[in-house]
Design a protein around this nucleic acid. Structure first.
Length: 294
DNA sequence: AAGAACTCCTGTTGGC
DNA sequence: TGCCAACAGGAGTTCT
């Protein structure tokens, strides 16, 4: 499920449950997800304090006491649930059955020192967890090649155009490549392409001029990516408030899409009477309006 | 060496 | 109702 805005939302939601708490006990219900869990995973976490949570691309990072980082990737179907988090403003013990997810896919349970519990559930098991030294993280093969954070200054029309030069792929596939820009996925690429009026079928090279300078399309695309992500994070934040008051399940964003999943529906862009279409690119669905995206 | 195809896994949905 | 195919928010590995 999660793309950058969801991981950011999850990070914020988990902060009160994890930051400044210690792992009292960690229950590991299976040897692997997508990859094997780290050697002695539970023993290495036990007793350790979480200094901070952060995010890089779609990775959720827990910086631990002792200069280690717990790296968590949620794959397609990973989710976290918080239970019995006794923090100011929450009622202890009210989250007895916080999750509607099938408990047979509860693979990891973090029992924290303040009495709260954080459970990782992942039916498809495309997620994974790593335990790395802080200083090794940037050199790790999963981080080394990651492109810039789309909400940082390192991501701009200039750097995007540089990566598009000579590329013989369509824009959709280009943006799915995490080396180009980190954290985008199927949904937000479709949305950003719609907002910028660019067809997902257009070639990536349209972002760069012969001189190497970015085209106007590149400028528009960068702006749209930023805008779509920022709005989605805000929307995710609003659903967070529910989880604290309600059932403890960490909700995802409530967001309305212009294209994603709207195959056959009307394009709602002003003055556009097109119909959203679904096509397959690199084996994945793309949604776009052939009328206003070129 | 870039780009396409295949792979991991379970759950849900829609058509017959 | 059951059955089966298609599809799902990801990305590493293997092919051509």
């Amino acid at each position: 499920m999660p793309e950058l805005p969801e991981v950011e939302t999850i990070k914020r939601g988990l902060e009160p449950a994890l930051v400044d708490a210690r792992f009292e006990n960690v229950v590991q219900r299976r040897p692997d997800l997508r990859f094997p869990f780290p050697e002695n995973f539970t023993a290495r976490l036990r007793g350790r304090r979480v200094k901070a949570l952060s995010r890089r691309s779609k990775y959720l990072l827990a910086n631990l006491e002792g200069e280690e980082v717990l790296v968590m990737h949620l794959g397609m179907s990973g989710r976290f649930t918080i239970e019995s988090c006794e923090k100011p403003g929450t009622k202890p013990g009210t989250f007895a059955h916080a999750t509607s997810a099938n408990p047979r896919h509860d693979h990891i349970v973090f029992h924290m020192s303040h009495g709260g519990t954080v459970t990782y559930n992942d039916p498809r098991r495309f997620g994974f967890m790593l335990l790395l030294n802080e200083k090794d993280l940037p050199r790790h093969r999963m981080f080394r090649t990651l492109g810039p954070e789309p909400l940082s200054n390192a991501f701009n029309a200039l750097t995007l155009a540089a990566k598009a030069a000579g590329k013989n792929v369509d824009l959709k596939t280009f943006l799915m490549d995490q080396r180009v820009v980190a954290g985008l996925g199927n949904i937000y690429i479709c949305e950003a392409l719609h907002q910028s009026g660019l067809s997902p079928r257009r070639q990536a090279a349209c972002l760069v001029r012969k001189s190497g300078k970015p085209t106007d399309r590149a400028e528009r695309l960068v702006h749209a990516i930023r805008d779509v992500l920022t709005k989605a994070i805000v929307a995710g934040g609003s659903s967070l408030r529910d989880y604290r008051q309600a059932d403890g399940a960490l909700g995802y964003f409530q967001h309305t899409f212009a294209t994603y999943g709207r195959d056959g529906k009307n394009c709602e862009r002003d003055n556009c009477s097109g119909t959203i279409r679904r096509i397959i690119q690199a084996g994945r669905s793309s949604f776009y309006c052939p009328r206003c995206q070129h």
